[in-house]
Write a protein that binds this DNA or RNA. Structure first.
Lengths: 351, 351
DNA sequence: TTGTAAGCGTTATCAG
DNA sequence: CTGATAACGCTTACAA
């Protein structure tokens, strides 16, 4: 150990922790040896005595069914989070094992958190109704959820302005002259799913456009459900001339359904998505969508958590991040359409 | 502590670690109390005494320039890794902080690893030439790289069969009757970038198709470079009738360039990508591509690492995972094209 | 079968 | 300014 360099362990500790009461002389000496040995203190020992780990736990439920981590969303959230808390000297622990410590009992986020003595927690992709999640929100551990509306004495959350975004989308379509505006919703068991539907309804009402039950198709945020939902919309007696898909993946599915039906986007049916995943810009026609600031969500969660860590009395915040309307080709009334898609559509139908 | 339940700390330890020499009676008693207290042993204390942490470190370079984590690739690798090592009772530590312990000196992956006493390391998105990475491969810590060809006494890597995949792509285009096959390469500073180019050349040679310098456009794996590269190819006196883009994102860019040029995919120019990211299936026309088993890469890295952890003499493996050709619309000679794209293209050109 | 005690690498308290 | 020394919560000989 570095303490084999002339001084006591206590002094080494003092030097490495930048305490004032060390002579410049010894300080230099210790630092020199430390550098030569490429020495680093043991996080474990420190955690043990300090009762804090400088580690933030991350719960990222990766279910088998719809592997949530596969959703392009969380990746970016993680980047923002990592950047923010990394700058403050924290590392991220991604809970992976199902039986932390020794598996003498069932899976438990809370127990895992205590096992590693994480200072705080960020959770995403979990089901708000999961009893294990509830145990977490009732615990003492500072906790920030992303995209799930968890609350508790020490837990808050960050979420995008989903209903506001939906309203933006609907208003945009209305501005473009559309009046028959349908929606393919996300999973209605999730907060974003519900809020986007609510925003859709609220904006229709404000615009004085009558709400129609048959214009609401329930999806699950994934491609296939967008495709199916759109098929159903197309088979209506009075199909819509605009569709708000509550997720870009579903919008992509809807797009395919529309084109398979021999119709054209945006000329026959305008389309707006939600999220602005990479896909949106690259699709043809490129997708008008509501951009979520995914990195911002992660960063906000990180900042909020840091604040709670340094001030035990800080109230856990509930943050809503603004979203932006990103106008691309799928809603642009042929204005920026580079090719005469309308002609093609007519021709196809005539064939 | 659970030890306030009648027995000594040693006995508690014995019970929780499933030692044989404990009477059924006391074992029951201890377990009962542990469950009641929702007790979990301290990872820090254990790490300290055992000199192992049951933690695998993850180095995921998230540069500012091209935020690599943003590449849809690593997310899935992480899922595979997490699943594999989680099942073996390990958790993942995502290195985030730039100054672990106390920042008395520069950033160093190795030091961070020792700081947390991680049992092994998985690295991705790093530059193989980075001196810090070299320090890692020269160290004693078991290490598996993903998609970078690192080697060392205790470090190996997992990588897809990039050259084989490129050959598959070229052969497929050749089978379809194409002879003027161009390539937009990835970054030639990376192993996958180079190998895909090498595979392209090797297969051309084997097929007896002469290699042409002007059919090689250097890209960087991202959309824009695919677009630019394709523009250059289109401006050639004798443009290609097929293009292998060494990444799906670049293929998407190429697709846009082709359609902007009034040409049609696949009828005028066939297109094959690489990676099979989510985008590929959703693009219109959907993209023929070489599928990498991203989850498999993560899982293989995890398994290999676990083996190295349990057997200190195990040689660090160098694994090459097979890839698949996924045939979709972008190379299908109109066969499965759902719409008369050819007509449209002609019409546009005539306009 | 169980308890006692040493030691893992730190920080913090208290003398000197 | 610096050095002993007692925790921190565990595992593991060694005793009993």
């Amino acid at each position: 150990m570095a303490r084999l360099s002339g001084v006591s362990v206590a002094t080494v500790s003092r030097v490495l922790n930048d305490y004032a009461d060390v002579s410049d002389d010894t300080r230099e000496r210790v630092l020199k040896v430390a550098r030569e040995l490429d020495y680093t203190p043991s996080a474990a020992a420190r955690t043990l005595v300090m009762q804090r780990s400088q580690i933030v736990g991350v719960v990222l439920h990766t279910g088998e069914g719809h592997p949530d981590l596969q959703h392009p969303f969380f990746q970016e959230v993680l980047v923002g989070l990592k950047h923010e808390i990394g700058a403050a000297g924290y590392d991220l622990l991604l809970f992976a094992t199902e039986n932390p410590g020794n598996g003498y009992s069932e899976h438990s986020y809370l127990r895992r958190a205590r096992h590693h003595r994480v200072d705080g927690l960020v959770v995403m992709g979990v089901d708000a109704a999961d009893p294990e999640v509830l145990k977490l929100t009732r615990s003492q551990i500072p906790c920030m959820a992303v995209d799930v509306d968890l609350v508790g004495r020490r837990t808050g959350h960050v979420i995008s302005d989903n209903s506001g975004g939906a309203r933006l989308a609907v208003r945009h379509l209305h501005d473009r002259g559309h009046r028959k505006i349908a929606i393919v919703t996300g999973m209605l068991s999730t907060r974003p799913g519900v809020d986007r539907l609510l925003g859709y309804r609220a904006e229709l009402e404000e615009l004085g456009v009558p709400y129609r039950d048959d214009y609401v198709q329930e999806g699950d945020f994934y491609y296939e459900s967008g495709y199916e939902g759109m098929k159903r919309l197309l088979s209506l007696d009075d199909p819509p001339d605009a569709v708000f898909a509550a997720g870009d993946l579903m919008a992509a599915g809807a797009l395919r359904a529309i084109e398979e039906g021999g119709l054209n986007v945006p000329d026959d049916i305008a389309l707006v998505g939600f999220d602005d995943i990479q896909l949106a810009a690259v699709l043809q026609p490129s997708l008008t969508t509501i951009r979520q600031d995914k990195i911002g969500l992660g960063a906000a969660a990180g900042r909020a958590l840091l604040r709670m860590l340094e001030d035990a009395d800080a109230a856990p915040p509930i943050l809503t991040l603004p979203v932006d309307l990103v106008i691309r080709e799928s809603s642009s009334n042929g204005r920026s359409s580079r090719r005469p898609r309308k002609d093609r559509a007519q021709e196809v139908r005539g064939a």
